[in-house]
């Protein structure tokens, strides 16, 4: 028996919005410790890694490990039926071929039950080693989304260069070029508005704007985003999901011919 309850269904809606650009279907691996999802996009260029800890749910029970393959388009249709203030409960029996979603309004005046068929998906998990990154940039997530949107007007790819002075985002194409530099903030009132750089060595890497823009669909989940970079390894873009967990995106760099 699996059962996971979130008072704020809005969080699950936002999680779904954050992954459905990159993935059409995915397997949710449920265990005693929580819900994990790891999947690559069709081109095997980016990877989504979602971790929702069991202790972050308002109620959580998972008697046996369970892998639930879901079509994310269909899951989106169901989650759209939940009111923003509704509580959501996901339930499945052991070895079930369906997952149930129950939405309850604030005073339980309205209770809606939906069932969705599960799928058997071929899963390919990549082993991602613990890495000490040369540069870790923490910045406001909305600022990162804005930069990705603005620079993708200039070219298909964008360079991210990090030094101890700051982080520079640049792009170039037919219409011209764009450069945005962010300095580390000296002092800020609100922690979520800060730009913080932890640098061991300067790094400059180039990435496809299309994927970065997809990652920024997670912006509503967190006020801050963390970019982890080292030479010649994939970028990690991480959004915390409150006390519940995190979503990480991995993106392979582009290499000059």
């Amino acid at each position: 028996m699996f059962e996971a309850r979130l008072v704020q269904s809005a969080i699950l809606k936002k999680v779904l919005e954050a992954i459905k650009d990159l993935l059409t279907e995915a397997t949710f691996d449920c265990s005693d410790s929580g819900i994990q999802l790891q999947a690559m996009d069709n081109a095997h260029v980016s990877l989504v890694s979602l971790n929702l800890r069991s202790d972050g749910f308002d109620k959580y029970r998972c008697d046996r490990n369970l892998s639930m393959g879901m079509n994310l388009g269909n899951m989106t249709k169901i989650m759209k039926c939940a009111g923003a203030e509704d509580t959501v409960t996901m339930k499945a029996q052991d070895n079930a071929d369906v997952v149930a979603f129950m939405f309850e309004s604030k005073n339980q005046e309205k209770v809606s039950d939906y069932e969705m068929k599960l799928m058997n998906l071929d899963q390919e998990h990549l082993g991602i080693p613990e890495t000490d990154y040369s540069c870790i940039v923490k910045m406001p997530s909305q600022e990162f989304a804005r930069i990705c949107r603005d620079l993708s007007q200039f070219g298909e790819s964008m360079a991210i260069s990090c030094t101890k002075e700051g982080v520079k985002f640049s792009s170039a194409g037919d219409i011209g070029s764009a450069n945005i530099k962010l300095a580390q903030t000296a002092n800020v009132d609100a922690e979520e508005e800060a730009v913080v750089i932890e640098m061991q060595e300067p790094v400059s890497l180039t990435f496809a704007c299309r994927y970065l823009n997809s990652f920024t669909k997670a912006t509503p989940l967190s006020a801050q985003v963390q970019l982890s970079m080292s030479a010649d390894v994939p970028l990690v873009v991480e959004y915390k999901i409150g006390e519940l967990g995190h979503i990480r995106y991995y993106l392979a760099p582009k290499i000059e011919d």
């Binding site: 081109a43 095997h44 260029v45 990549l126 080693p129 994939p234």
Partner: peptide, 14 residues
């Protein structure tokens, strides 16, 4: 121009 690399170049299937 820059070549897009796949993740398999960095991480192997478990």
């Amino acid at each position: 121009t820059a070549d897009q690399i796949e993740l398999y170049a960095y991480y192997l299937p478990d």
